[in-house]
Design a protein around this nucleic acid. Structure first.
Lengths: 202, 202
DNA sequence: TGCAAAAAGTTACCAGCAGTAAGTAATGGG
DNA sequence: CCCATTACTTACTGCTGGTAACTTTTTGCA
């Protein structure tokens, strides 16, 4: 699906960029989907129909690429989960749907998910928070709306948001390697934990 | 603290290995503590007083090294958390101490934690589960003992264990980058969530 | 119209690192 | 005394992230 592009150097007509940032990111997603999480920047450049320095100019280095893709994936997850609970009031079944939507979205972008969660390197290892950081803010807001008590203390909401994102991330990672375990099933279990707490309702 | 070692080739007296697996792993931990999560195998070899092929012979490649170190770290976390709740019956304050112990142990091994959680490469990106997998089994057991309902369904215990480990992992990663936020404080917040559930006790 | 400056890309490279093949020195058995 | 084995090193390959320097086209302006 790579549209054939004039690869010759020189300033094109109208001073328009031949490939923009989004085009490169699209190419990166295709490569990752095809080749897995170990996709190289070189391969991304080829898929985008350009050379490596262009990739660096448009999106930066490997860490930046991971960040950008994390943001995209986070957006999709947020969209899917928001849609799953649209207009509903907080309930356990709603939470289950929320979690199930998360799982299914991750499964839809399996390789991308693995790239993003495992993709940060070295110094930016703190960048593991990339996916978390991106999806954490919307989640924190959602939490604050859902549970009134948090509204006064955004610090708590942040800790909870990171915690929940971490939980969903790890469960997702574990689940996509499992055979014969439905998303609904797992979502129900995690929902039960997150809703009723560790000791359960008596 | 590298003990000076005969670097010369040849079969040493008694056919004893000059450096064993544990020695290499110790060296790896020192290097990671000193140089951060981007430590190379070459550096590990130098620190251990040997050459690269020895490292490969003793522990395998980079992924295997990450796995081995993950197991060590997981053991320490399990030990610390178990100790923190030793002999206690399940309670929210006990859970808080459990989480705090987890946070403090991670902080004690900051760089190692980042190496292990971010260290897996490519195919083994599923190896992100390394740390999780190691600490998950003991945690699942602990959960089963704590909460009787789970005992009959080990599948639930597994999902919960992965979820909780993921939550703790992400919270740890977030917390060690924060300034002026005590472990006890964060532990209390997460404990509250994990104990009373998202909607809270009414 | 002619020409310099800027824009947009490419080529060609470097450095570092994971991983391995082949060679070499010391030991012990026959 | 010699040869096979053991234990280790040297020296390499291949790949990948990242960058410096060059080339081509267009635009602005005198």
């Amino acid at each position: 699906m790579t549209e054939s592009i004039s690869r010759r150097p020189g300033r094109p007509l109208g001073g328009q960029l031949v490939v923009d940032r989004e085009h490169v990111l699209d190419a990166a997603e295709r490569v990752i989907r095809r080749e897995g999480a170990n996709a190289s920047l070189e391969a991304v450049a080829v898929e985008a129909g350009v050379t490596k320095p262009i990739v660096y100019d448009r999106v930066g280095g490997r860490a930046d690429l991971a960040d950008a893709l994390a943001e995209r994936l986070a957006d999709r997850i947020v969209l899917a989960t928001r849609t799953a609970i649209a207009g509903e009031t907080l309930s356990q079944t709603g939470l289950t749907r929320f979690i199930e939507a998360n799982l299914l979205t991750v499964a839809d972008h399996r390789e991308l998910f693995l790239y993003v969660t495992g993709g940060s390197t070295e110094q930016t290892a703190l960048g593991r928070l990339s996916l978390a950081g991106m999806s954490t803010q919307p989640l924190a807001k959602t939490l604050a709306v859902w549970r009134s008590g948090i509204q006064q203390d955004p610090g708590v909401a942040e800790a909870w948001a990171f915690g929940i994102v971490g939980m969903l991330q790890m469960v997702s990672q574990w689940w996509i390697t499992q055979e014969g375990l439905s998303a609904a099933e797992v979502a129900g279990q995690i929902s039960e934990l997150l809703w009723n707490g560790l000791p359960g309702r008596s």
